[in-house]
């Protein structure tokens, strides 16, 4: 199973995809210089992983635990938002196929805009998010 473990940099977030531990997490800032090169492989890996579970009818086995998506983003530009929305479409398709997935959207106390973006995203894919305010 393909894992992803990308360290955070100045302009790009930390990204972890750890299927064994049922975890996908993005953390930090996102305005990569080449946004396509950064996000395409991540989206491709996620899409293939979740589509395979559905296609090979492993849903029951997958659902023995809940797969967690943690979005702990401080800032992202509009091009990154497009790719984050592509990741959310994968979540939407997977939940519609009855996969057990939960989305956690973190935002800093006072950062109402980041919470609002999460609400927009949740609305867009018709999947409820769990919102977690972080005090700093």
């Amino acid at each position: 199973m393909k894992r992803i473990d990308i360290s955070a940099a100045d302009k790009s977030p930390q990204v972890i995809f750890d299927p064994e531990n049922y975890l996908y997490e993005m953390k930090g800032n996102s305005r990569p210089e080449n946004v396509r090169d950064f996000y395409y492989p991540i989206i491709d890996t996620l899409r293939k992983y979740f589509e395979k579970i559905v296609a090979e009818n492993e849903i029951l086995f997958f659902n023995r635990e809940c797969f967690k998506f943690n979005f702990k983003l401080e800032y992202f530009n509009s091009a990154s938002a497009k790719f984050i929305s592509d990741i959310l479409i994968i979540i939407k398709n997977s939940t519609e196929a009855k996969l057990n997935i939960k989305v956690y959207w973190y935002f800093d106390e006072g950062d109402d805009d980041m919470k609002e973006v999460g609400e927009d995203f949740s609305d867009m894919i018709s999947v409820p998010f769990n919102f977690i305010m972080v005090k700093r």
Binding site: N34, V35, R36, A79, A81, I89, D120, D123, M124
Partner: peptide
């Protein structure tokens, strides 16, 4: 904004038109 996110195509320069 929500409609455009779903429909946006990323250009070679990395722009999403958003």
């Amino acid at each position: 904004y929500k409609e455009s996110l779903s429909n946006a195509e990323i250009s070679e320069k990395g722009g999403a038109g958003l």
